[in-house]
């Protein structure tokens, strides 16, 4: 039984990672063949780095995903705070459904509708080229927002409402109370929201494809346009690098998460040890 379950697990992992493994392997191929591995080489990596258009696209993607993550984290956190403070349950439900729509909506619908909006407004304003970095940024913030809100909101719900009140009680204005007490409390949620927004933005192809002009090409769009011509192994090299970067990010994130958990466990242990001394301290 144990062997069977192991086997099953191995099969699942093969299913999940075989495509990536093949891609990584082929990226080190010395020839252009995708069926025959003729020798290990870094040729395609060099080739990829020589391609200035690819590097430009990578730079664009980083700029876009970082800025959209920052904007949506700030806006989303504020929105979550507002939603959390709503007293009217019906209103809160309505607002939550509205914010969740971009998340549930198929990307293609969101993309087309955003493009239509940009074209409409752009024409109205008489702009020459209306699809640019800025439209892309707006589009990305739009689909990132619900994820940030959904990761911050539970943290706010967890917080004892007396905690911000205690800050007011001790002399903080509501604004100072937010920065000194509430923000540190919800920080883990904010960070998760940021990372989620960043990766979603980095990944996105469909919505970006509809809302970016010719002047600003993201990595996904660039790769797509390369594939349309011919698939060369330098794309595998690029994809391998991106995969490695994502893997690294994930490992770092999980490690910090675990150390936090270990910390909490350590605290509990210390607390238990301390309980014996309780009576003494009370006197």
């Amino acid at each position: 039984m144990k062997i069977l379950s192991r086997l099953y697990l191995i099969l699942v992992f093969i299913f999940l990672y075989a495509p990536i493994a093949v891609m990584v392997l082929i990226s080190f191929n010395s020839s252009e063949s995708t069926t025959q591995f003729s020798g290990f080489s870094l040729y395609w990596y060099r080739e990829m780095l020589r391609d200035s258009a690819t590097l430009e696209a990578l730079r664009n993607t980083l700029v876009l995903s970082i800025s959209s993550a920052v904007v949506s984290t700030v806006v989303g956190t504020l929105a979550a705070v507002g939603i959390d403070r709503m007293r009217n349950r019906f209103m809160r439900g309505a607002v939550m459904s509205v914010t969740n729509i971009p998340m549930m909506n198929p990307d293609i619908v969101t993309g087309i509708s955003l493009m239509l909006l940009f074209v409409f407004v752009g024409t109205l304003l008489g702009l020459e080229s209306y699809l640019s970095f800025w439209t892309l940024l707006i589009a990305h913030v739009t689909f990132n927002l619900p994820y940030v809100i959904l990761s911050v909101l539970p943290k706010l719900k967890q917080m004892d409402k007396n905690i911000p009140e205690a800050a007011l009680d001790l002399g903080c204005t509501p604004l100072r109370s937010f920065f000194k007490v509430e923000l540190p409390f919800i920080m883990p949620g904010v960070v998760t929201g940021f990372i989620m927004a960043f990766t979603l933005s980095f990944d996105d192809f469909v919505i970006s494809n509809f809302t970016s002009g010719s002047s600003f090409e993201t990595l996904t769009i660039h790769i797509y346009s390369m594939i349309k011509k011919s698939v060369k192994p330098d794309i595998y090299a690029l994809s391998t690098l991106i995969f490695a970067a994502v893997l690294l990010l994930l490992v770092v994130y999980n490690m910090s998460d675990r150390s936090e958990r270990d910390d909490a466990r350590g605290k509990k242990r210390r607390e238990l040890r301390f309980r014996g001394k309780e009576g003494g301290a009370a006197k």
Binding site: D160, N162, I163, E165, A166, A167, L168, D169, L170, G171, C172, T173, V181, P184, F185, M187
Partner: peptide
């Protein structure tokens, strides 16, 4: 007068200490 302008301080039921 908002709480932060009153010379009154509070000990809350569940302490409400700042966990960070």
């Amino acid at each position: 007068t908002p709480p932060y302008k009153r010379h009154i301080n509070t000990v809350f039921q569940r302490y409400a200490l700042f966990p960070h």
